[in-house]
Design a binder for these strands. Structure first.
Lengths: 192, 192
DNA sequence: CGTATTTTGGAGCGAGCGCACGGAAACTCG
DNA sequence: CGAGTTTCCGTGCGCTCGCTCCAAAATACG
């Protein structure tokens, strides 16, 4: 019925996500997005709306790919403490593997834009809540199986892990000493 | 010998720091800085150099005022666990008290600008290291007095607290439930 | 009081920003 | 193959950006 697109929308969205992820919202220009996606400016605007809408789409895409991957690590079978350790070790290793890496996009969005944009804040909250819930379920499972003491509530322990986890991802931006970071992980897991 | 300044340099620096802190580096224009400090553009450039230099000055000013305040909380006398609790509770309360608050400037700088600016990264590292060292000393003191088990090294425990602490400050941007946040603090302190 | 020196305020520079637009191009379908 | 529809690409608009410059203003000193 009309001229077909010569790009894949998901590929373009992934490229835009990586650009926002690495450079942040303000430091990313629409030319940067045009370059990294390979789309012309008008195609960008036709497909995704304006810069802010594309940022929100990128953040949601991060949820569907990366946040989902994090909770998937927790939902796997096996000893619960190993699942929790996997989550954190995986984060440390991906943060350290790529020198261009830019931590966790959700945290970046939370710091740079959640204050000034209600929709961004709600989206960030959704990410946080999803990970927190996955952690709570995992810990509750561990408490039922006896791997984790039921002394403190699963919710409190989950928030404690969540806090350590996000702190790790902030520290890992500066502190590149893998052993020090893994020491945090071990100490946290063994304290459960 | 010449026309005297009609502003106080420290006051201007404090105002600039608060602007960068709240809005971030990229979203802050030199007009914003001119407005918040009350200085004309030429006075700003005469006194502080360009925008980036002013940002570095602001970050160092944060170190001397706010980071120093954090370590001062730890250096006070009294039970060690109370000192650690104070540090975290104080952060939660200041983050929640002011709806305009924007978390921890060091974390913000780490997320927005440490990747792309070596001097910012070194300054952020200095903040992190200072808090980590203060935590290590505090925990070592607790181990000597018997308040904290010497099973795990003071350095590892310090980094664990540091991680939780920074995670708390990220979470507090979104999660405004004081009881949930304080639950993290209690759980962390009681696990020592 | 005149001169030297520094600060101040405001205008304005070139560059890059987000975004819009219009015509050419590439398809589907009658 | 022509009509209709959507996408693509380049140009450029209005604006704001970081930063500079300069003349007026305000002091200290001989």
């Amino acid at each position: 019925m009309a001229r077909p697109r010569k790009f894949d929308e998901t590929h373009a969205l992934t490229a835009a996500m990586e650009t926002f992820w690495r450079r942040g919202y303000e430091a990313t220009s629409t030319r940067n997005l045009s370059d990294s996606t390979g789309l012309g400016q008008s195609s960008l605007y036709n497909t995704f709306g304006d810069k802010r809408e594309l940022y929100l789409r990128a953040l949601r895409h991060y949820y569907e790919t990366h946040t989902a991957e994090q909770t998937a690590l927790l939902d796997r079978p096996g000893p619960v403490k190993e699942r929790l350790r996997d989550l954190m070790v995986h984060a440390v290793d991906t943060d350290l593997a790529d020198p261009e890496a830019s931590g966790c996009f959700t945290i970046n969005a939370s710091v740079e834009k959640a204050d000034s944009d209600d929709e961004v804040r709600e989206e960030v909250r959704r990410h946080f809540t999803t990970v927190e819930r996955a952690l709570t379920e995992t810990i509750a499972r561990g408490q039922r199986s006896g791997e984790i003491s039921p002394e403190r509530s699963a919710g409190t322990l989950a928030r404690q892990i969540l806090s350590t986890y996000y702190g790790l991802r902030v520290l890992a931006r500066i502190q590149k000493d893998r052993d020090a970071l893994l020491g945090i992980v071990e100490s946290t897991v063994s304290a459960l």
